[in-house]
Each structure stands twice: as C-alpha cells, then as structure tokens.
C-alpha cells in the first residue's frame, strides 16, 4: 500500500505545485511508482508545470462522475518510468467535489502506486479539505517571510486537527546571502515558530523559472542547487537518512572545497 501525502501551504505562490512536480518526478527517478494529483479544481496548474498540459483528456471530475475509469484518466509521463498525473477539472469549482470522493480516489491510487502526492490549492476552504481528505502525511511548503509562515502555522493547526502526521516542512526560496546579512529568517528561526520537522531547504534558484517555462521539472537537470535539494527531499521521503546541508553563506574557499568533495 502506498502513502498519500498532501502538499500544502495556506498561502499561494510559495511553491506547492513546483514542489509537487519536482518531488513526484524525483521519486520516480529513484524507481518509485508515483501518482501526482492536482486538487486545485478550477485553477489547475500541475499539468502545465510538468509539461503535460497537451495530453490531458480526462480529469478527477470525470472519474467522480463515472465518465471514465481512474486508470484511463491517469496521464503517463513518458520521460520517466512510473510517474502518472491525475489532472483537475478546469471548468468546475472546488465545491463540486466532496472530501469523501477525493479520499476514494486517493485510496484507489495507493493500491497501485508507492506514493500519491496531492497538490493542494491555496486557502483553508473546501479545496484544502478535499486535498487533505485522503492524506496520511503532509508536506507544508513555506518561504521565509512573515505572511507565508503565518499561513503555514494556520494550516499546520488544521492538519493536526485532522490527525494527519507526520507534517514535514519544506523551506523554499531560501537565500543564503540574505540570511547571512540578517535580512531573512534562517531555518532555526522558522522552526522555532512553526515547531514541526524540517524535511528540506530549497535555495532560491532561477532554474525553477526556466524549467517551468519549458515544462521540464528541475530535477531532470542534476546540477542546479534547487534540483539537488528536491532530490535529497525525495530520498528522505523514501526513508533514507540524508542530513540537511547548511546552506548559509560561506566563504569562497569553503565553497571550492565543498565543490570538490561533494557526492554526485
């Protein structure tokens, strides 16, 4: 039986969809079978971020309305073995789906996949309830700014009420330079406030923008810092113990030594 993990944040624009696309792809690259589910009914984007937008025929709405079988609605990503996408309907809205219906889909997907990653919409309303209904675990994505952290705290409270655990944190768009000069909270500050486990820090990486432009998740390109961060998080999700590297700004010499001694 596979695990169902909801990827959520409260606030929009912090990187939920990017994280879902990259972690889903990374887990498949590690040999796992993965279904990524877009739960953002009416504002779907996981398809375009992953570059699969031209291949969507059916959506979760069609499955719920019994217009097609679940297996037929899944779009296979041809670039890697074992990765499927279930798109959200673009012409419906969040209230057209019940939490129990989403849970039924997740429960079915977990019988055939090692991981089911559900990309939650922003907000704390029905879209969030639907996305988290079938989840065993949660990944909360936040950036190191006050509004994203405040919303993350609210979402964490709601997830705890639903007895979803563990709840793991991804600290996204982290800038070692800004932390170094005191303009950005570091991971210790954020964890002190949110009080949940950190599963990874993703540094600010312009590669995210270009990879989204192309519809090719960053993890296909293994050299960028963002890609490496997502690969490490994926390995941690599979149970490997990989320490979280200290991303704070270091001197040039340390960086050169690290570059030569890094594991590939």
């Amino acid at each position: 039986m596979g695990k169902v993990i909801v990827v959520t944040s409260g606030k929009g624009g912090v990187g939920k969809t990017t994280s879902t696309a990259n972690l889903g792809t990374a887990l498949a690259l590690l040999g796992k079978t993965v279904a990524v589910v877009d739960a953002d009914v009416g504002l779907r984007n996981l398809d375009i971020v992953m570059g699969l937008e031209s291949r969507i025929v059916y959506t979760s709405m069609d499955v719920i309305e019994k217009q097609c079988e679940l297996s037929k609605a899944l779009v296979k990503d041809r670039r890697v073995d074992g990765l499927m996408l279930l798109a959200a309907s673009q012409k419906n809205n969040k209230d057209d789906i019940q939490p129990a219906q989403m849970k039924a889909i997740c429960d079915k997907l977990r019988t055939t996949h090692d991981f089911v990653l559900v990309d939650s919409p922003a907000g704390i309303e029905r879209g969030f309830s639907n996305a988290s209904a079938g989840a065993d675990e949660a990944i909360v994505v936040t950036t190191p700014d006050v509004s994203a952290i405040r919303d993350a705290d609210r979402i964490i409270g709601l997830l705890q009420n639903e007895r979803i655990e563990p709840i793991n944190l991804i600290l996204n768009r982290f800038s070692p330079e800004l932390v170094g000069n005191g303009s950005m909270m570091d991971q210790a500050d954020v964890l002190d406030i949110l009080n949940i486990d950190l599963i990874g820090i993703v540094p600010e990486d312009s590669g995210v923008i270009t990879s989204t432009n192309r519809g090719i998740p960053l993890v296909y390109e293994d050299t960028s810092p963002g890609s490496q961060a997502y690969m490490r998080i994926a390995r941690r999700l599979t149970g490997q113990r990989i320490p979280i590297p200290d991303l704070e700004h270091k001197g040039l010499l340390t960086n050169i030594v690290n570059w030569f001694t890094r594991k590939r």
Binding site: V146, S183, M185, D189, D192, I193
Partner: peptide, 10 residues
C-alpha cells in the same frame, strides 16, 4: 536586523 524584527512580530 530585519530578520529579528520579523521573528518577533510573527
């Protein structure tokens, strides 16, 4: 430092 102010306000 503004990061400290952010943390206290939060």
């Amino acid at each position: 430092k503004s990061s400290n102010i952010a943390k206290q306000r939060l």
